Amino acid sequence: MAITAQDVNKLRQMTGAGMMDCKKALTEAEGDFDKAVELLRKKGQKVSASRADRETSEGVVFAKTNDAGTEGALIAFTCETDFVAKNDEFIQLGNQIAEAAFAEKPANAEALNALSLGDLTVGEKIVELTGKIGEKLEVKAFEILTGEAVVPYIHMNGKLGVLVALKNANGADVEEAGKDVAMQIAAMNPVAVDKDGVDPAIVEKEIEIGKDQARQEGKPEEIIEKIALGKLNKFYKENTLLSQAFVKDNKQSIAQYLDSVSKGLTVSEFKRVSIG
């Protein structure tokens, strides 16, 4: 059957795909719009597969929190180029995925991709947009956080996001303090809230590094352990959030800063997601 310009334009309006892609799909589907849409989706799957080994080092981090400020979600939706990261459809889909993740709190990436976004799943929507845009797209990371008070922060380049959960959050300036701490996490990338949260494997590695350094410096074997533990304490001070010097006032630690805002105010947990 003859495919008219009006048919092509209609399919283009339905799918957002290119004019020639729509014409080819309609011709192959013999004018059946549903089949043509399915063919375009299959094209998206082919594009997605052919670009599976591409790096997605650009994109946008999205943050969602509830009105009560007790729950939050972070999504890193990534692509290949900065140009696509600014695309309206890309941003719209990223927001939809973040909303779905926040509402459903999936346990892993597979469950996230299976979430419903209208008539398609998250994974199918990504494949569909891949077909239209022609770049590999993926949710590279996502985090869910709950707490007494959850404060979000997105860095100005849109490629780094933080959620921080505060405990004993009773003061009037708590949200502002949460923003300050979230910015600290963005800038300094701590490994844990405090030393108790540091992975034992990291602790063991730091002790071994400390011992090796001491031996290379010719220190006596009987004090090697003590020196290594001293270096470990320095590691904790520089790399755990509450012990770090506050970037806005390095005369006090984050723990001291929070306590000065509201007695007993502290951080229970944080999540940090970045792209690139």
Rank of each mutant, 00 (worst) to 15 (best):
Q13F: 12
Q13M: 15
M14H: 12
M14L: 15
G16A: 05
A17R: 09
G18W: 00
M19R: 12
M20S: 07
M20G: 03
C22D: 03
A25M: 06
A25H: 04
L26C: 02
L26Q: 05
T27L: 09
E28T: 09
A29P: 03
A29D: 04
E30F: 06
F33G: 02
F33Q: 08
K35G: 03
K35T: 12
A36F: 02
A36V: 01
L39Y: 05
K42E: 13
K43R: 15
K43I: 11
K43V: 06
K43A: 12
G44V: 02
G44W: 00
V47Y: 00
V47N: 12
S48L: 13
A49D: 10
A49S: 14
R51F: 04
R51Y: 06
A52E: 09
A52W: 09
D53A: 14
R54P: 03
T56K: 09
T56Y: 08
T56L: 07
T56F: 04
T56A: 08
S57V: 10
G59A: 06
G59K: 02
V60E: 12
V61T: 05
V61W: 07
K64E: 13
T65R: 08
N66G: 07
N66M: 08
N66W: 08
D67A: 13
A68Y: 06
A68V: 12
G69T: 07
G69R: 05
E71N: 15
G72V: 08
G72K: 06
G72Y: 03
A73N: 08
A73S: 13
L74F: 03
C79A: 11
C79W: 01
C79M: 09
E80D: 04
D82L: 11
D82T: 08
F83Q: 09
V84Y: 01
V84W: 01
K86R: 14
D88Q: 15
E89S: 14
I91K: 13
I91V: 13
Q92I: 11
Q92C: 12
L93R: 05
G94P: 03
G94F: 04
G94C: 07
I97S: 00
I97T: 09
A100V: 08
A101P: 02
A101Q: 07
A103S: 14
A103C: 05
K105A: 11
K105L: 00
P106A: 07
P106L: 05
A107D: 06
A107N: 08
A107K: 14
N108D: 13
E110T: 14
E110S: 12
A111Y: 11
N113C: 11
A114R: 05
L117A: 08
L117V: 06
G118D: 04
D119L: 13
G123K: 11
G123Y: 05
E124T: 10
K125Q: 15
V127C: 10
L129Q: 09
L129H: 02
G131S: 10
G131T: 05
I133E: 00
G134M: 11
E135I: 05
L137H: 03
L137Y: 02
E138L: 13
E138G: 11
E138K: 14
V139H: 02
V139F: 05
K140G: 14
A141F: 10
F142H: 05
F142P: 04
I144R: 15
I144W: 13
T146G: 04
E148P: 03
V150T: 00
V150G: 01
P152K: 03
Y153S: 10
Y153F: 15
